[in-house]
Design a protein around this nucleic acid. Structure first.
Lengths: 391, 391
DNA sequence: TTGAACACTCAAGAAAGTTGAGTTAACGCT
DNA sequence: AGCGTTAACTCAACTTTCTTGAGTGTTCAA
């Protein structure tokens, strides 16, 4: 979901230049440091064109020189890298009880992160809080407002009035109007809104285990279970921005059909342990239960792995991803345990002998994944050529 | 799957022009007839640029003038339309027992269709046959070879060596090398290879019920059951071209888990009726069984609708499409029956009050759908701007 | 009748890319 | 050590394509 991009699909010199700039930035980001000639080869532009663009980007402060590297014969390559301070992105994750914010630089390093409790998550409070938090982040870090490239916002999906409306984790009042536009007006910035799974997937792609991957799926353990899909380097959003609502599909666990989410989410493990009289609220609680090999937790993990195996079969056969990443608000040890226990379906298009990535991987988990992912949405945009984004 | 497009992502004047040309063609195709000014507004180019491009396209024979239309004030609009003879596409569907071919013009009208039995579907025979059929089609229709924009080839998936290899409908010998390249070399044409479901989806989008839709799913009843996914106007291919292999996922029918394909495919209905001693081979057989309300067929239809309901839940929640289209090698009356009987899942992101399309629709079915879809792949390419096709 | 609205054309100008010759620096063969 | 080869990069002229702004023709409405 994006603030309305008008149909600027025609290529005129100005847009072509902006397109090429982003192409160059992407090439630099992709390989860390790189010289002009290599960028030219990768982009199909002439060295001269790349040279001109680079001197622009240097002047704008988006690139820095990185010294020479002599690779074989010929004149040593003058290398370039992204200048971290060349721009900043603001990431926001809105949950019913708290708002998480992060300010990250152009290479994705978090400069500042923050958690603000939300007593009353109404639309007005959220908008006020997000503006206040942005001001706070800017003044704390001395970052100039004009250096902000945009804001990414993570909100619980699904968006709009759907058959899944009424789910636990929902925020009231956002079903009317386009959230992206509302935030864009309040923050006076370009805004990108996604659900937690999509944002987490983008975080993984920008600075995590999915770096460089163009086709993968991300299973995000949040309140529920979300699926972030990246296809051809782009988030798969669906016609109304609600693709990836995997939590409510039926899978078999011990021969009985259950909603996937009721077998694999954080709410699920909490409810399961609560039935045994255990009150588990934090990730640390879970970690310590795990380290003591708590029987009930182990049973839950087993059925979660079972459910996941069924989900994996669906995801792999429907999307044919390079890999499926697991992450989110679940301790690493639990994720690793689940991954180890999950049976990789045999009858799957992903079951190929020539794979280069494992079929299941663990992503960067933890509290801030989705928030950093929100910021990553902005960075992704900054490194994505503008022409022909066919929306 | 596409013949290797080198990274020609940079925008230079030449590529920008070609991009803009395709943008103009697309705009014309989209609205049937249209004037310069409107195209300019839609594309973000100046009227002058559009004018220049149009005079190029007229000279190339891709457009024709369509007379004036006075719409309100001002100078009456000089309108343009696609010239059907401006180019041709060759569509090929390869099945184990036969090859179907079609030659279609630039607006998608079939000029000639043909069925060639294949005694021995080896790689060599297929390549020879496809070349012979192309020659035959050209000579029959007097179409000049240089007017061909490319060939689309439909082959049974999945491609490459996967966990689904060994499925009934497979062709031997295509697991090594890129089929698209092999065909491209043989035919000396740009070649696009897809599975039947993807091709059928594209046929629907170019000239069927999905015309103008950018996000939809197509369930194709073939030997098995395939899923064609169109996202943002592009076929979703997955990392290895095998996305949409929905046939092998588990669904519940009468409380029992079965492979979706074993409940919904043509092979499934044939096997089901064979168990009752009925030998059903043609679509006409099915139609007449249906018109006599055959009990076994009705039972099969009921369980197929059940399985479909489960599949629908998965497709809708994972892709959030505008609609799901049913089509393929199944008589229309049966598809309509199934659609009428399928319970639309309530807990689905597609269950929204503000829908404009039905959740389930019947596509153009029949023998030639996939073959025409193969040709549609070429047309789609011809109307898709070139820059930033990010592959 | 007159003026506003609109589509379209013409000619000049601007933006951005390409081309080809020239410069510089490192490698490696003699 | 000398010298030719290789490769990255720059400079300046050229080319393509788009935009701009003035101008023309047609229609509608006051």
């Amino acid at each position: 979901m994006v603030t309305t991009l008008k149909p600027k699909l025609g290529a005129n010199p100005e847009r072509a230049r902006s397109h090429n700039k982003q192409l160059v930035l992407r090439a630099v980001r992709h390989s860390g440091t790189i010289g002009r000639a290599e960028i030219a080869r990768a982009s199909g532009l002439s060295t001269q064109a790349v040279s001109n663009i680079i001197s622009d980007l240097l002047a704008e402060g988006l690139l820095v020189e990185q010294g020479h590297r002599s690779a074989g014969r010929g004149l040593p390559v003058q290398q370039y890298a992204i200048r971290p301070g060349g721009g900043y992105a603001f990431g926001v994750e809105v949950r019913p009880t708290a708002m998480f914010t992060a300010l990250v630089d152009l290479v994705g390093t978090p400069i500042l992160t923050h958690r603000t409790p939300l007593k009353d998550p109404t639309k007005g409070v959220i908008l006020d809080t997000v503006c206040a938090q942005l001001d706070h982040a800017l003044s704390q870090t001395q970052v100039q407002r004009h250096m902000l490239m945009g804001a990414g916002i993570v909100m619980p999906g699904p968006f709009g009035d759907t058959g899944l409306t009424g789910t636990a984790s929902e925020l009231p009042g956002w079903n009317i109007g386009d959230p992206a536009e509302i935030f864009a007006t309040a923050l006076e910035l370009p805004v990108f809104v996604e659900n937690d799974a999509n944002a987490a997937a983008m975080a993984e792609r920008m600075n995590g285990v999915a770096r460089g991957l163009d086709d993968f799926a991300y299973l995000y353990f949040g309140q529920g279970l979300g699926l972030g899909l990246v296809q051809n380097g782009q988030i798969l959003q669906g016609a109304f921005g609600n693709a990836g609502e995997i939590g409510h599909i039926q899978v078999l666990v011990d021969g009985r059909p259950v909603e996937l989410e009721s077998a694999t989410s954080r709410l699920s493990v909490q409810a399961c342990l609560a039935r045994q009289g255990m009150d588990v609220t934090t990730m640390d609680d879970l970690t310590s239960l795990y380290s003591s090999a708590n029987r009930h937790l182990m049973l839950w993990l087993d059925q979660a792995a079972q459910a996941l195996s069924a989900a994996l079969s669906i995801i792999e056969n429907l999307f044919d991803p390079e890999t499926v990443i697991l992450g989110g608000a679940m301790p690493d040890v639990l994720l690793d345990h689940i991954i180890a226990r999950t049976v990789l379906p045999e009858r799957s298009v992903s079951n190929r002998p020539d794979r280069v990535h494992p079929r299941l991987m663990r992503g960067t988990s933890g509290r801030m994944t989705a928030t950093l992912g929100a910021a990553a949405l902005v960075l992704h945009q900054a490194f994505t050529p503008t022409i022909a984004e066919a929306r």
